[in-house]
């Protein structure tokens, strides 16, 4: 598998996500501070960092579930918390999210889970919806599982189904929270391949939260590292480039599994 190339954002379009000087906090407790970065169109952007550094919190802010304590998050040039309802609605529809444990609705089978957004937001007829659901499930390798309920599937399958539902509306941005966590190495690798394939064939911008090094080096075109000690991002760029350039010991430890700088080449 060749490593994905870094895309360049078209100059005349606003980037899909732009974060300016954002602070994330729970009440008085600051989780992350002074975050400024841009996610380019068609990128696979990784938010990495150790446990509890606020990766998932940042993702929830990017999705628009929470309002940042300070700063602005622009989606396609619009501030989600400072625009009219119609634009807000449009921006939310233009993205799909896979949550850490799939987030599938347990009272619906897989076909119904994928069909739900299509029924709500498109005027396709039931037959077309059914066909689209079959295609989406086939894309994630779950053809024939239409009538299964989430509880009947393994964790990995639930994640795949979560991706199928997130892709239901062919979103421009796909948010994935820990896609390969808790999967066996082979399933994790296949999921990585699937992510690369989806990005390259549908030109979707993908934002991934993960701390799986293997995934980070395989799928990333761009990444940021959130440091839990300093409560801010300490690096941005392609993970390999970051590892080459950085002198930050926390970051080196993270990217080399704590083996230190001497083994850096080996880790790459």
């Amino acid at each position: 598998m060749t490593p994905p190339k870094s895309p360049s954002n078209p100059p005349h379009e606003p980037p899909p996500i732009e974060v300016r000087d954002v602070t994330l906090s729970y009440g008085q407790r600051i989780i992350q501070d002074k975050l400024t970065f841009t996610v380019k169109k068609g990128a696979t952007f990784i938010i990495m960092g150790g446990s509890g550094c606020g990766k998932s919190t940042l993702l929830r802010h990017l999705i628009g579930l929470h309002k940042p304590a300070a700063g602005t998050i622009l989606r396609d040039g619009h501030d989600l918390w400072n625009c009219d309802m119609k634009t807000q609605h449009k921006i939310r529809q233009a993205s799909g999210t896979m949550f850490q444990s799939g987030g599938l609705w347990s009272s619906m089978n897989l076909a119904e889970n994928v069909a739900f957004p299509l029924q709500e937001y498109t005027n396709l007829n039931p037959r077309e919806i059914k066909e689209l659901c079959q295609v989406k499930l086939a894309l994630v390798g779950l053809a024939g599982f239409e009538n299964f309920y989430p509880a009947e599937l393994s964790g990995g399958m639930q994640k795949r189904a979560g991706i199928a539902r997130a892709m239901a509306l062919d979103p421009k941005i796909l948010f994935l929270d820990e896609p390969s966590a808790g999967l066996d190495p082979i399933s994790a690798r296949r999921l990585d391949e699937l992510i690369i394939e989806l990005r390259e064939s549908l030109h979707t911008t993908i934002v991934v939260v993960t701390h799986e090094l293997q995934s980070i080096f395989t799928i990333a075109t761009d990444a940021i590292f959130l440091d839990s000690a300093t409560h801010t991002m300490t690096a941005q760029g392609h993970p390999r480039q970051i590892l080459q350039d950085t002198t930050d010991q926390n970051l080196i430890d993270f990217l080399t599994r704590g083996t230190g700088k001497t083994d850096r080449q080996q880790a790459i």
């Binding site: 295609v135 086939a138 894309l139 390798g141 779950l142 053809a143 024939g144 299964f148 399958m157 699937l194």
Partner: peptide, 20 residues
């Protein structure tokens, strides 16, 4: 288009497919 071709292959790929 290349992307479409790749997606078509992906829907049929056996390595990706799980058996119900």
């Amino acid at each position: 288009p290349l992307g479409l071709k790749r997606l078509l292959d992906l829907t049929k790929s056996t390595s990706n497919k799980l058996q119900p």
